[in-house]
């Protein structure tokens, strides 16, 4: 079970959170300008990497806030958490296990 640092509440058990999948997928500003495959790319296609993955989490049973997390999908190590709207931390060497 993951130990997640909510940027607002601090460390909490995974059971308080909900994972919302890949982060930084922006809703297209003008959906009509997209072809069906382009729209499908936004809607369904996912990077799904083995390794570092930026994803959205919500502290559902806590403060209710969404935030971003970079996590290694092969090891479950959480590299960083950052608030919505913030850029991912530049320091890509940090490691928490």
């Amino acid at each position: 079970m993951l130990l997640i640092s909510c940027p607002w509440c601090g460390q909490r058990d995974e059971s308080e959170f909900t994972c919302g999948g890949e982060a930084h997928i922006l809703r297209p500003a003008d959906p009509d300008a997209l072809s069906d495959p382009e729209w499908a790319d936004y809607l369904f296609m996912r990077t799904n990497p083995k390794g570092r993955h930026r994803e959205r989490w919500c502290h559902t049973h806590g403060c209710g806030r969404w935030f971003n997390m970079e996590r290694d999908t092969a090891t479950h190590d959480i590299v960083s958490v950052y608030r919505m709207g913030e850029a991912p931390p530049d320091d890509r060497d940090g490691n928490s296990s």
Binding site: L2, T18, C19, G21, E22, N48, K50, H53, E55, R71, T73, A74, T75, H76
Partner: peptide, 8 residues
């Protein structure tokens, strides 16, 4: 399933 992506 678990709710997060994983290859572990």
């Amino acid at each position: 399933i678990d709710g997060y992506n994983s290859y572990a």
